[in-house]
C-alpha cells in the first residue's frame, strides 16, 4: 500500500473528514454543474418578475432584476471556491516560505521577518484589504491577491516555531554532513516534518478566505459583476430587500457560506488528526 492509499484509508474512516469532504464536494458539484441543473440562465433578467417571493417556479424567489436567486446561488459557489482556494494557497505558500527561512536561519533574518509578521498580525486586515482592493481596482484576481497577501502571517509564525525545534534535530546536522545546502534542508528535510500542521492550516485558511471574500464583496469591494454569495447579500442589503424582510434573498447564500466554511474546517481538523498520529492516539483513549 502506498502512502497515498494509506492516507485515503484512514481518511475514509474519519467521520469529521468525510462529512467535510462530502460538503465540499457537493459545493464543487454545484459550481461545476450549475449550467445543467439550474432552471434559468444567470444572465436572464425579467423586469416583470422582480423581487418575487419563493414559489415553485423560483424556490428562492427573484432579485431586483428578476433573476432567479436559486440559479445565482448555485453559480455563486464557483467564486467562493476559486477565491477561497487560490487565496489560501498564496497565504499558506508565503507563510511556509517565511516561516522556514525565519526559523532555519534565525538571527537577523528571523528578527526582520518576525517584525514584518507582527505588523501583518496587528493591522486590522479587513480595513487594509478594503483600502488596497479599492486602490487595485475591482477584479477577482485582485481580491485573491489581497486576501492572500494579508493572511499569511499566522501560518508563518506557526511554521517558524516548529522549524525552530526541528532544525535542532540530529538529522539536520547529518544532512549538513552529507553536504546538503540550506534550501535543500529546508524544503526536503524540514518541510515534510511541518507539513501535518501546514495542510490542516491550509484548510482553515481556505475557510477564512471564503469568509473574507464574502465580507469584502458584501462591503462593496471587489468585483460586483461576478456572481457571488457575498454579492447577493450585498444586493439584498443595497436594494432594501433585507429591510423589507425578504429572507429568501439572504438566507440561502448566507447558509451556503456557513456550510462551505464548516466543511473546510472539518477537513482541516481531520487532516491534522490523521497526519499527527499523537492526536489520533489521544482520541482513542
Amino acid at each position: 500500500m502506498t502512502e497515498e492509499q494509506h492516507f485515503l484509508k484512514i481518511f475514509l474512516h474519519n467521520k469529521k473528514g468525510m462529512a467535510g469532504l462530502i460538503i465540499v464536494l457537493i459545493f464543487v458539484a454545484m459550481g461545476i454543474l450549475a449550467p445543467y441543473v439550474t432552471p434559468y440562465s444567470p444572465s436572464y433578467t425579467n423586469p416583470n418578475a422582480f423581487l418575487l417571493p419563493p414559489s415553485s417556479k423560483h424556490p428562492f424567489g427573484t432579485n431586483v432584476l428578476g433573476q432567479d436567486l436559486l440559479t445565482l446561488d448555485f453559480y455563486g459557489a464557483r467564486i467562493s471556491l476559486i477565491v477561497g482556494i487560490s487565496a489560501a494557497a498564496i497565504a499558506v505558500g508565503l507563510g511556509l516560505i517565511v516561516g522556514l527561512f525565519s526559523g532555519y536561519y534565525g538571527g537577523v533574518i528571523d528578527e526582520i521577518l518576525m517584525r514584518v509578521v507582527d505588523f501583518f498580525i496587528v493591522i486590522p486586515a479587513l480595513v487594509f484589504m478594503i483600502i488596497i482592493a479599492a486602490l487595485l481596482g475591482p477584479s477577482t484576481v485582485n481580491v485573491i491577491l489581497v486576501i492572500g497577501m494579508l493572511s499569511w502571517a499566522p501560518t508563518a509564525r506557526i511554521i517558524r516555531s516548529m522549524v525552530l525545534s526541528i532544525r535542532e534535530w540530529p538529522f539536520v546536522e547529518s544532512a549538513k554532513a552529507n553536504n546538503a545546502g540550506s534550501l535543500y534542508i529546508m524544503f526536503r528535510h524540514i518541510f515534510p516534518n511541518v507539513s501535518s500542521v501546514l495542510y490542516g492550516n491550509a484548510m482553515l485558511a481556505v475557510a477564512s478566505a471564503i469568509f473574507t471574500q464574502a465580507a469584502l464583496v458584501f462591503l462593496g469591494v471587489g468585483n460586483v459583476t461576478d456572481i457571488s454569495w457575498g454579492g447577493i447579500i450585498h444586493e439584498a442589503y443595497a436594494t432594501g430587500a433585507l429591510d423589507a424582510g425578504d429572507l429568501s434573498y439572504v438566507i440561502p447564500p448566507g447558509f451556503f457560506i456557513f456550510i462551505l466554511i464548516f466543511g473546510f474546517i472539518l477537513i482541516g481538523y481531520a487532516v491534522e488528526e490523521i497526519l499527527n498520529p499523537r492526536l489520533r492516539i489521544l482520541k482513542r483513549q
Binding site: P170, F171, E173, S174, A175, A177, R188, H189, P192, N193
Partner: peptide, 12 residues
C-alpha cells in the same frame, strides 16, 4: 554521528 539513530529523518 554520535547517537546516530536520531540522525535519520523520520519522514523519509
Amino acid at each position: 554521528f554520535q547517537g546516530a539513530m536520531n540522525t535519520l529523518n523520520p519522514l523519509m
